[in-house]
Amino acid sequence: MPLMPKRVKFRKQQRGKVRGNAQRGNYVAFGEYGLQVLETGLLTARQIEAGRVAARQFVSREGKLYVRVFPDKPMSKKPLETRMGKGKAEPEYWAARVKPGAVLFEITGVPRNVAQEAFVRVAHKMPFRCRFIERRHA
């Protein structure tokens, strides 16, 4: 099952725009290393899952992986060869709104070079430029 909310208040949402920078969720909070986004956009549930699988397969059973984003926005799509109009289309997939600075994934319990290599693989699955960051200590 792809990631999606269990319950929603409304089935469909207006498209909206993603503006500004991440003012929260922009630092490594749970793990030791993280993957930070440098661009704005929408991250689909499939892309999040692809990233998670890529990281998990690389580190196998080692370490603990945290997914810091959740796709809570339903995206509608009109079927192919359909005329315009006749109301808003049915929800097709779910996406997370992502702003520059947001930390997508975090990992702990693996050496730095392993975490870095794992996140390189995850970054290939992401539709934005990403960078590897470390926890900021007190």
Partner: peptide, 8 residues
């Protein structure tokens, strides 16, 4: 359609 959340 099967993969849809419950509407509150």
């Amino acid at each position: 359609a099967a993969a849809e959340p419950e509407v509150i």
